[in-house]
Design a protein around this nucleic acid. Sequence first.
DNA 1: CTAACTGTTATATTTAATATATAACAGCAT
DNA 2: ATGCTGTTATATATTAAATATAACAGTTAG
Lengths: 125, 125
Amino acid sequence: MNIIISNSSETPIYEQIKQAIKKAIASNELKENEVLPSIRNLAQNLRISVMTVKKSYDELEQEGFIKTVQGKGSYVAPQNLELIKEEQIKQIEKHIEKIVTISQYAGIGKDEIIELFDYFYGEQY
Amino acid sequence: MNIIISNSSETPIYEQIKQAIKKAIASNELKENEVLPSIRNLAQNLRISVMTVKKSYDELEQEGFIKTVQGKGSYVAPQNLELIKEEQIKQIEKHIEKIVTISQYAGIGKDEIIELFDYFYGEQY
DNA sequence: CTAACTGTTATATTTAATATATAACAGCAT
DNA sequence: ATGCTGTTATATATTAAATATAACAGTTAG
């Protein structure tokens, strides 16, 4: 798994780690019951504190994405693909809500948005 | 102009004020050269510090949305409707980019997104 | 059992962003 | 002159984020 963190980003490091792991699970790069990097190892690789990684893992566990066993390590929780997909859709919905709000008070038409959307969607291929 | 700020929001107060004013300008509620509330007055109404409001106004001026004259007050800068619309579109683009990224690694199809979009867009009427 | 990994807990500290309070200063207008 | 405007400087408080360190505890391979 390839986690890249930015020191200067406005999003906290522990949040960047969380997102990277969720993304890896969502894209099936990390499969069910697969072992995650140990917090000590990941901290060393990213050159950050163990506590920062632990915070990420703690929250991921609380949200149901991983399971941690003392002495063994952390694993991708089973049956969470649906969980993640739901969360991703919720995230998408939030973005859409903001887009609709902005477009309305700024007088930007739906057509214009759809054009932008087509543009960005097509660009990826 | 109706500015509502939340003390418990994750977005800073000065940022909430900036967004509210930008929104008011974008929706033409505040017109070109119109006077904004004085920083002292707004601070009193919102029951926050003068310095917090000043920070909002300073950044709004730096971004070209308003003009401030010592002793007189702050005014909506002229010819900024286009400026704002551009900024709004940039914001929308950022949201779209995130949506596309998420949908790609999470295996959510374009159709599904369009459906969500139609739903949220239609809901507003 | 021991060594070398895992995670856990507690404590102390640092840094930066946010927000406040206060006061003195300066410009504008009636 | 009075009473509005904004400006500047200083000091302070609070909180989130991140770090460092050390001692503790579970797991596993040899």
